[in-house]
Amino acid sequence: MNARVIVMCVLCVAAIAAAPFIGGDLGGETGAFVLTSLRIPRVLMACMVGAVLSLVGACYQTIFANPLAAPSTVGTTAGATMGAMIAVLAGGAIGGLPGGLPLVAVFAFLAALGVSLFVAALAGSGRARVNDVLLAGIAISLATGAVSAGLQFTADQMQLFAAVQWSLGHLPQVNYRGVAMIAPFVLVTLAVLLAQTRALQSLAAGEDRAHSQGVNVPKVRGIVLGVGALGVAACVAWCGPIAFVGLIVPHMVRMGVGSSRRVLLPMSVLLGAAFLTGCDTAARLVLPGRELPVGVLTAGIGAPLLVWLVARGRR
């Protein structure tokens, strides 16, 4: 393993380990409560969401052979937004859900999964070329976006406020139960996607070449899109759309340690976890007395960072 990979691993682990101890006095009983019941579960949540978004981004960029592909490319985020909007509007009528599940998260999850599984099924059918799948993802994003806009038009002020808050993207104040609820989705997504490493490495040399080398391209595409959507839908449902993580982290890994999928995919998991944890910690601290939504920060940091990375790579 080369030195750059080791350095990146150490930095990521150190950043994650340090995050719960940053900010505020942790002395006394209150401090111990803040650390173990508030900050640690929140860091765990940030790690899981960051890891899933980044790994899915890296995998989508490979199967679409497009460096601009991201977890939102196949309509997952737009679907979740539509589901959240429906939940916000229908909230009064339906009331609470059994087990105290948040209505918005459940609706966002189901809509996100439904929309992206449709795209995944198209990709897995073997009838569509890769650009058709990409176009289908964009079309379905626009269509669900239109439905969301239409729903917003019928909403009252309070409902609109709730919808906007969700759409900013934030890591909720979760307890361990919340962590345990999202963990199975995250673990399945990470395990299944990392198991596709060899196929994705072959796909990096082109779709047709991968076919001739024995890769069942439609099947791999269907698995990656379907399982990716499952993980992303679970994350987005809880946290709202957290922009740029899935797009930029794989590029940061590439610049640091290269494009080999054997390194790119696991390092995207680790750097994604560290990146979102870091952003969330900063979001906690940047405004005195209140929290900035982390989605605002990831986009605020991510966009200029992406431009800088690209400009640096061109030299």
Partner: peptide, 11 residues
């Protein structure tokens, strides 16, 4: 195949 081998930096 006839097309170029790669479009991205791989060892």
């Amino acid at each position: 195949p006839q097309q170029a081998l790669v479009t991205e930096p791989l060892e």
